[in-house]
Structures are given as C-alpha cells and as structure tokens.
C-alpha cells in the first residue's frame, strides 16, 4: 500500500513539473482515445497551433463518462467532456457542472440544434446492419413478423441499446410495448455492449445487428469489403448525436472554447468520419469521404428532445424488460 502511494506520488510529481505549457484535459470515452479512434489525429492537429498540451482521458463508454463526471463532481481536473449523447445530456446538464458553450456554428445535422450547453461534434442514424445478400425487412413490424434473427444491446449497459429503446418509443409511442413483445422471438440475444453484439453478427450468429447506417462504411473503406449494408426502415431512423460540453470549473476556459470551436472546424471534422465512423456535425468543405455516398439515406430522422428522453428512460426500460420476459 505504501509503495502504491509512493508510486502515485512520483508520477503526479513528474506531471506537475511539466505543467509550464497549459494543459487541456478532455474526458472522453475509451474508444475515442484509442489508437484506432479519432483521439491521436485530433490531438496532433489541435496541438499544432494551440501552444498547449491536449490530454485525452478515457473513461469506459458513454454512460461511464457521465458517471465519471458525477463521481469527480466540481473537483474534476477535466476542462471538457466529449462523448455524451442526447439520451444522457439532460442528466448531465442537471449536475450543474457544465457551462454554456456560447457558440453558433453552422451545423449540418438533419435536425435543428438549440442546446445552449452541449455542442454536437458528430452523429449517426441507428440501423440494423446485415449482409447484402440478406433480404432485410423494411420496418419494425415487418421485422417482427419475419423470421429474421437480430442481436441487440442492453439499454441498461449500452448507449446503442438505449438508442434502440428510444427509436421504438419515438416511432411507435404507446405501442412500443407491443412492438417489443412481437420482436421477442426475433432476438437471438441481448449483449452488454456494442462490440459483443457486432462480433456475434460477424461470426454469423444473427442476420442483423443493431449498429449505425455508417457501419458498412468501415467495411467498405478500411477493409475494401462491400458485403455489408444497413436496412432502411419506413418509420424513420433514430439518431445518436454525440456532444461535447465545457465544464464550469475549468481553469482553461479560453482554451476549452478554442477546443470546442476546433472540433467543429474542417481539420477535426475531416478526421471523424473514418475514425469514429459517424457523420460530421458540420460537413467540411471537402465533403464526405468517398464511400459514404453508398450508405442508405433515411427519409425521416427521429430524435426525442433530451428532457423527454430522460423522463422516458426508466419506464421505457421497464416496458422493454416486461415485454421480453418469458
């Protein structure tokens, strides 16, 4: 125990000695930080002219991120939190830890954006991804009567899982429980996170997996494999809008503002589509990467307001659980 404290002390000493250049600490989810995520390229581009040290701190997934913010509270060393989605922003705003962003960027989201606290940096439509040779159903109801087999994520432990819950709720309202009951026999299994579900789909365990309309772009661009596509649903597709916010207690408010603006600049927005595999929140002048034009384009975009999503969550999870219980 003593060596633990000693070691921790030495490391923090080492870091404070370097603190001459200003440090901007950005708390984000783990896959953003990873070598294969946007983190390294974003860091390089931002540090090129900020005369600062940008440090990403990874904290599990999107839901873990909010829990981390609440754990650290006002004492947090983070200046910016990046990676919440609109199903979580109401709870995040209610902590009172975030400051208004004060920016009016020219966004290219399919919906209007008027949140004064959080700014989107990328977004995607949820969709069921399948192999091109599979005859996919075109709505939840068609899926329910088909014998297509799907893998989904648990809304209690995964943000796509929660997104699917909101999708059914936004599309079918009070009938959501019925829709889930009808879908029960199509569900192979419910996984704790996105990657287990996607892995099971790639192993051939299901016909379709809940993911994003942009998922086939990964296979096409990174693996030159055009065998994957996503099913277009008549009800429209629910959106996941990934947002960032400045913490009110930051000791680098100007640098934090600069970072928020940078994340919506062409330099950062060009990095996101092929590292985070989502749509840029503000389409850069160079447009979307080649290959994105092959993706399905939903006619209707669904998104519940943050406050409504927060209010619905508990009851929607109960409804989901009751409908899928055997």
């Amino acid at each position: 125990m003593r060596s633990l404290i000693l070691a921790a002390g030495i490391v923090s000493l080492g870091q404070s000695a370097l603190a001459e250049t200003p440090v901007l600490s950005v708390l984000t989810y783990d896959s953003f930080v990873s070598e294969w995520g946007p983190g390294p390229a974003i860091e390089k581009a931002f540090e090129a002219d900020c005369a600062c040290d940008l440090q990403f701190v990874g904290a599990g997934d999107g839901a873990a991120l909010l829990s981390r913010v609440r754990l650290e509270g006002a004492a947090t060393e983070a200046d910016v939190v990046l990676g919440l989605d609109t199903n979580l922003t109401a709870a995040a705003a209610a902590t009172g830890l975030f400051a208004p962003h004060g920016q009016t960027p020219d966004l290219s989201l399919p919906v209007a954006w008027d949140d004064a606290t959080f700014l989107p940096y990328d977004w995607g439509w949820f969709a069921f991804v399948h192999n091109r040779d599979f005859a996919a159903p075109a709505s939840f109801e068609a899926l329910a009567v088909s014998d297509a087999r799907i893998v989904i994520q648990d809304p209690r432990s995964s943000t796509p899982g929660l997104g699917l819950l909101m999708w059914v709720k936004a599309a079918h309202g009070d009938r959501a429980g019925e829709v889930w009951a009808a879908l029960a026999d199509n569900i192979v299994t419910v996984t704790p996170g996105w990657s287990e579900a996607y892995g099971l789909f790639l192993e051939g365990e299901a016909d379709m997996v809940l993911s994003y309309t942009t998922s086939p772009a990964y296979h096409l661009i990174a693996e030159e494999d055009d065998s994957k596509t996503a099913a277009l649903f008549d009800e429209g597709h629910y959106m996941q809008v990934e947002v960032m916010g400045k913490l009110a207690g930051t000791d680098q408010p100007d640098l934090a503002d600069r970072f928020l603006a940078f994340m919506l600049s062409d330099a950062a927005q060009e990095i996101l589509p092929t590292t985070n595999w989502m749509y840029p929140a503000r389409e850069p002048a160079s447009g979307l990467p080649k290959g994105f034009e092959t993706l399905i384009q939903p006619g209707t975009s669904l998104l519940l307001p943050a406050a409504e999503a927060e209010a619905l969550r508990g009851a929607a999870i109960e409804e989901w659980r009751a409908a899928l219980a055997r």
Binding site: S31, S34, W36, G37, S195, Y198, G199, S215, H219
Partner: peptide, 13 residues
Amino acid sequence: VQRLMGAYRMDQA
C-alpha cells in the same frame, strides 16, 4: 482487446 473490438477490428482483437 476491448479497444480493438470497439473500433470494428474484431480480427485484430
């Protein structure tokens, strides 16, 4: 391993 899986790289994971 978890990061590779989260980045679609199931083979490398």
